[in-house]
């Protein structure tokens, strides 16, 4: 059981009272629905290239392409730049990229990668960080020193540099998960697999576990001497039992709050890695941003739209994180509050 009734009540109360958590839930909901139902919502296969449709602007804008060709004019070979105006069409509401791939479809499919890497990466970080932190905090002393100092060493490197180094070390392995929509034959025209960049998931987890370990350690240090832990010890409970039954559940709330915010950090890190080309899939916002880099002057939407998607996702996740923090902060948690 993750939440006690009281915690659930606090979450509901904050959600009811404040605007931003509501917004967070709506935005995050959109993100999840978009990612889950990408094959249904996407108007095109995001990987299909339609060169005749390339660089169409989003609805409401017009775009220009410059075509350079060599022509024989008056007996001389001249380089001629032709500027054609491309108008937006409803077939590609958010336009297309340089290879004529539908931007809307790419954004929807990119949400899958970002969310998967964000959630799985945080899970990896939690699987490493939480037990490490709990054990370090609970036992203290030398065990604490050994575990936490090794974490500090990792923190000494900038996370992006470390991630790049690790991806370079492991190579870019990917996991291909069959897309259920396609397998069930509902959307046969779409890519048949969700490509999960396995190395990236592992690496972002490895880079970020220390933060979770730190907060878990802090909580465990406090809880190790809580009277109810002493009471459990006095009836003969083992450290394992105490860690599982008392320390972990009571440390979970702050860990969860941090983990939520970590999801956002990891989404950003994934985008950065994809931007640098260290990724196993091309269906990634960061990758798309890098693709449009050279076209900024003529086709701004190729970078801006995936860039906006990243901002949107990070914002949504952070709003959820803030909601958790506000609702679960022990200072605000107290029932009733005020009073004599």
């Amino acid at each position: 059981m993750m939440f006690t009734p009281r915690t659930r009540r606090a979450l509901r109360r904050t959600l009811r009272r404040q605007l931003l958590p509501k917004l967070g839930v709506v935005l995050f909901g959109l993100l999840v629905v978009g990612a889950l139902c990408a094959p249904l919502l996407a108007p095109h296969d995001p990987t299909t290239q339609q060169l005749d449709e390339k660089l169409r602007p989003p609805i409401g804008f017009s775009g220009q392409t410059e075509q350079t060709s060599s022509q024989l004019v008056d007996g001389e070979v001249k380089t001629v730049t032709e500027t054609t105006t491309i108008s937006a069409t409803w077939t590609h509401p958010l336009g297309t990229d340089a290879l004529g791939r539908d931007m809307l479809s790419r954004v929807l499919y990119g949400a899958r990668t970002s969310l998967l890497v964000g959630l799985l990466g945080t899970t990896v970080a939690a699987i490493i960080g939480v037990p490490t932190g709990l054990i370090a905090g609970y036992y203290g002393g030398r065990i604490d020193d050994a575990l936490m100092r090794s974490g500090d060493v990792m923190l000494a490197f900038p996370s992006l540099v470390l991630a790049v180094a690790l991806v370079g070390l492991f190579g870019t392995a990917t996991v291909r998960i069959p897309d259920p929509w396609v397998v069930l034959g509902i959307t046969p025209a779409m890519p048949a697999h969700v490509v999960l960049p396995g190395t990236v998931v592992l690496v972002v987890g490895l880079v970020n576990w220390v933060w979770l370990a730190r907060i878990a350690r802090g909580e465990a240090m406090g809880l190790a001497n809580a009277p109810y832990v002493l009471a459990a010890r006095s009836v003969g409970a083992s450290d394992r039992f105490i860690l599982r039954r008392h320390v972990l559940p009571n440390a979970l709330t702050p860990i969860l709050v941090l983990a939520t915010i970590q999801v956002a950090t990891i989404i950003l890190l994934e985008s950065a890695l994809a931007f640098l080309g260290f990724t196993g899939t091309t269906l990634s916002w960061g990758f798309d941003v890098s693709q449009g880099r050279d076209l900024l002057s003529t086709a701004w939407w190729v970078t801006t739209i995936p860039g906006f998607a990243i901002v949107f996702a990070v914002f949504a996740v952070n709003l959820i994180g803030d909601w958790f923090r506000d609702a679960l902060d022990p200072g605000i948690d107290a029932d009733g509050g005020g009073g004599p």
Binding site: M1, T4, R6, A226, P227, Y228, L230, A231, A232, S234, V235, G236, A237, S238, F241, R245, H246, P249, N250
Partner: peptide, 29 residues
């Protein structure tokens, strides 16, 4: 042997029901 602490609230795990708290020594052993 057993021990009873001063702070009535903090000596009980806030995430356990009264029954779980009382039965913990039995579960442990």
């Amino acid at each position: 042997t057993a021990i009873v602490f001063q702070e009535p609230f903090s000596s009980l795990d806030p995430r356990m029901t009264v029954e779980e708290i009382i039965c913990e020594p039995l579960v442990v052993n």
